[in-house]
Write a protein that binds this DNA or RNA. Structure first.
Length: 260
DNA sequence: TCGACTCGCACTTTTGAATCGG
DNA sequence: ACCGATTCAAAAGTGCGAGTCG
């Protein structure tokens, strides 16, 4: 299946950590996108104020002299599935214990330096400042969004790995979990229910897990935007999920658990 | 009263340890 | 002793529906 081209449906921002500049743990918002209310990574104060998730670290920067000379590209592998959901209005269940995303984010990378090491990150940012409700047959805004929660990132379990490792294989973030538990200690990404979000993927040069720095590439795919819910609102989304998700096989018409 | 949320259920897939044979 | 393939049980991931909460 041909994946979406690097130019189609992909927005990339490339930024560079300034070794001697502003707070390296909180890079200023990248250009070309509405600046999120908070930086990509929590401030050290934020990190100290809450229990750190197992793989969500705020490492010190590493000055690097090697910038990506070739253009780094990221393609969404399962873009067609995402587009099916997006056409209906993607909903993601969030639970207290954490729920995986479906569809999951699966991408292919190109343009990385095979010899350099990289860390791949996923974070999810609010799309707007509204709260939503499913009324009639559509989502409508019903008021102001709740206060933004502390940012958390999901670090791909293979990180850090060389460019050679990431190139030519599909990189899946299906283990990332979403929760509505504001005091979550499992490192899941905390979101508000009934809000709209945009997942973002980041590639960072790194020598190891504790020394990040150098060029940073950020990508977002419009078709991966979603609304968070604690129970599906749109029956068409339920139908699509049951049809597409192997774990929900039991609810298909030929399954024993299907409702008549 | 109503909408949002939680929890347990029955089902499926995934994962990893144990076992077996070459 | 080692390694790869197979088996199997436990863990994890699904949506549903009833019950709870504010």
């Amino acid at each position: 299946m041909p994946a979406a081209s690097g130019e189609q449906g992909v927005r990339e921002q490339v930024s560079r950590m300034d070794p001697a500049g502003a707070d390296p743990c909180c890079p200023s918002p990248t250009e070309g996108e509405a600046p999120p209310p908070q930086g990509l990574f929590p401030t050290s104060c934020n990190m100290a104020a809450r229990a750190p998730p197992p793989r969500a670290l705020a490492p010190p920067p590493v000055p690097t002299e090697t910038a990506g000379k070739e253009q780094v590209k990221m393609e969404l592998e399962n873009a067609s599935l995402w587009k099916q959901f997006s056409a209906v209005g993607t909903e993601m269940i969030i639970t207290k214990k954490g729920r995986r995303m479906f569809p999951g984010l699966s991408v292919k990378l190109s343009g990385l330096n095979p010899a350099l090491r990289y860390i791949l990150l996923l974070d999810i940012v609010p799309l707007d400042s509204s709260r939503y409700r499913f009324q009639g047959d559509a989502w409508q805004t019903v008021g102001e969004a709740e206060a933004r929660l502390p940012d958390r990132v999901f670090i791909h379990p293979d990180s850090p790995a060389t460019g050679a490792h990431w190139l030519g294989r599909s990189v899946a973030f299906h283990r990332a979990k979403l929760t509505n538990h504001t005091l979550d200690s499992q490192g899941h990404i905390i979101l508000h229910s009934l809000h709209r979000y945009q997942p973002r993927l980041h590639i960072m040069e790194a020598r190891d897990m504790l020394r990040w720095g150098g060029a940073q590439h950020s990508f977002s795919f419009p078709e991966t935007q979603f609304l968070t819910v604690t129970a599906y609102q749109n029956p068409r989304i339920t139908e699509l999920k049951i049809r597409s998700n192997p774990f929900a096989k039991g609810f298909r018409e030929d399954g024993r658990n299907c409702k008549k």
